[in-house]
Design a protein around this nucleic acid. Sequence first.
DNA 1: CAGTTAATCTTTGCACCGTTTAGTTATCCG
DNA 2: CGGATAACTAAACGGTGCAAAGATTAACTG
Lengths: 205, 205
Amino acid sequence: MSAVAEIVHQKKFKYHHGDLRSALIEAALAVLREKGMDGLSLRVLAKATGVTQAAPYSHFRDKDDLLAAVAETGFQRLALQMAEEATGRNSVQERIEKLMAAYVRFAVANKPLFQLMFSRELAVMKDYPTLAMTAGKSYALISATLSKRQASAEDTRFLTVMIWSLCHGLTTLIVDEKIKLEQFGAANIDAFIRRTVAPFSGELV
Amino acid sequence: MSAVAEIVHQKKFKYHHGDLRSALIEAALAVLREKGMDGLSLRVLAKATGVTQAAPYSHFRDKDDLLAAVAETGFQRLALQMAEEATGRNSVQERIEKLMAAYVRFAVANKPLFQLMFSRELAVMKDYPTLAMTAGKSYALISATLSKRQASAEDTRFLTVMIWSLCHGLTTLIVDEKIKLEQFGAANIDAFIRRTVAPFSGELV
DNA sequence: CAGTTAATCTTTGCACCGTTTAGTTATCCG
DNA sequence: CGGATAACTAAACGGTGCAAAGATTAACTG
């Protein structure tokens, strides 16, 4: 397919509004950033994109379906930032540290989005297979790094779950302000993470 | 105040319904168990307790205030189960294992209640100081156990946060079905937890 | 190019929700 | 006993997700 045909083909998705589906997701991200999850309703998204309240139902089967799409872009960004921050680091331990730090940093910088990504509404991901796949990218990054060690596949899988649990637990507790990093002298996240990973130095070859 | 006066004084709180406040909390726990968080509305609680929809506002300033009260009983039960499961264990490592296992077990057995306890609505606990205090009991149990080691207070505080993060992260991932324990051969939770804590055996003196 | 098809969007309306207000009733206390 | 007050009722407001039916318009087809 030529580049022009590509554009024409895309135009297929621009009926009345232009690209309402993308516009809704973008609007949701904006509302999320400014008002948090509570301010996120289909009606405000419809108003923000200049359509009536029922229009979104042409693109999403229900509200959760839209939220899943928004969360998916969140998981994509998260995986991207993790991958970026870990590039160039060859030591397994250092890579793990960077992956975890990126995870925490993303959550702190995009608090409402992070809350949506792990919200109760989307908890049952089997209803949203593509979301589950995208969310799995973060897991895959950790798993791939740990695979570089000389250990059995089963051991890698277990340690991945451990590191992920630690990372995710730490992050949620920080986001919910149940932990304040300042209490630990570690002004920046990296120092705190380094200390967190230290007990595993033996496992990380 | 005599025992009789005590009862009379309590009766002061039983005007029309009897004890609507407690009844609402109990009804909430029942609805939570049967229908999950989504089915939990003030109106169904009012109907369940045989009052009109505005009655709860005599006892709770708003819905979140009621949810906080429900969550508080949840945190009390959690701390109780953790304490019970850890009694009689003298080794620090064994106590930590039991505390963590109890945490996971409670969450799995009371999934919707656990979700409520760590829900977005109640995340800002500074609005609910008594809730924060009760929630702190679980933290205190871990902290107290780790204090038995010979280490600085600062070290204890850090390790407590680590263990708690690991425990909480693991639990939420299990509750949200992102981890399936069966994948690790560990049929029961205890075996899995033991393996999880193993890397810390050096730290746990 | 003209007519059909089918997707997008609007209109309207339902049921439910949290919350507020004003009024009623039962209990407490002097 | 009689006023004060807390607990509750009745009614209503604005907001929500969602479904059904109709209008509009872009895209496909002969």
